[in-house]
Amino acid sequence: MIWLTWRQHRREALFALAGLAVIGTLMVVTGLAMRTAFNDYGLPECVARAGDAGAGSNCNRAFNQFYDQFSAVSLAGILFLVLPLLVGLFWGAPLVAREVEQGTHRFVWTQGVSRRRWALVKFGLVGAAALVASVGYGLGVSWWVSPLNQGWRQNRFDAFFFDMQGVAPVGYTLFAVALGIFAGTVWPRMLPAMAATLVGFVGVRVALATLARPRYLPARELTYPVQGTGEPDPTGGDWILSSGVHDASGRMVAPNAQVICPPGASGPDGRACGAELGLGPGAYNWQLYQPGSRYWLFQTIETGIFVALAVLLLVLAIRRIRRIA
């Protein structure tokens, strides 16, 4: 069975290996360039002194220069969001669908090996290959984007950045493969199986990322004055779900805004800080957020959910295979 699996999928495996090698090379090259630039701009010091009043505008400028130079590169990171889906489409979906479409299931399932064993070996090996590949690129991307995530503009908790690094891609990849296999047992034709995988994967991913992820743990609230200190550290990596300025009675007066004035400062015409926005005395900033320290916990929860879904789909697929003739 192992020989057969290798013989049938060696082309996909070599193709994937070549693709990963190309992507890996590009990552190493641009990753090293990013690190050099990061050091040249003196950003490690800025990160270390983050929140320090003295860090101020020099660091701001340096970060801006850094992001201007590399934001285009970070767009390439979108590619990593698609990789799990590609694995699901080209490894998962054809696994059963192609056999049935070409009728070869009647050939291989009438040899001396039970269907169950056929399924376990095939799913196991393809799943293991997907696992190794996804661990590789998940950790690779974590290394690659870490300079970008150390500033405040591209938080690693943000959509996209959360999804393409760490262990989450492992969950997505296993889920995509399992979804492809399952779709192939429901619609045993290549194109419908691939279409179902595409729709299912995007649907579940978007639903979980937008509806479920912010609620994995109860969010925290933070309030701080519009004038004075106590503003949150922008490099702390907090995931801000919602923010705004409240007046003294606690009513939201300026959604999605933040007003910060240095202590003792006043507006251009001598009025109090924020008066032009209609803020009275006692107004304060408010934000609902997930602390940056929860990043790995959230990664684990997200991965766990997708791995559990993958296992469920594989069990269903094995049950369905019994009924295909």
Partner: peptide, 29 residues
């Protein structure tokens, strides 16, 4: 299954396998 030989309609085989590879495959299964 071990005692029954079966050739399905349209004789489905893995078309990219050579005859030698198919014989090897049969030996493994």
């Amino acid at each position: 299954l071990a005692q029954v030989g079966f050739v399905a309609q349209d004789t489905p085989l893995y078309r990219d396998f050579t005859a030698t590879e198919l014989i090897t495959m049969g030996g493994r299964l």
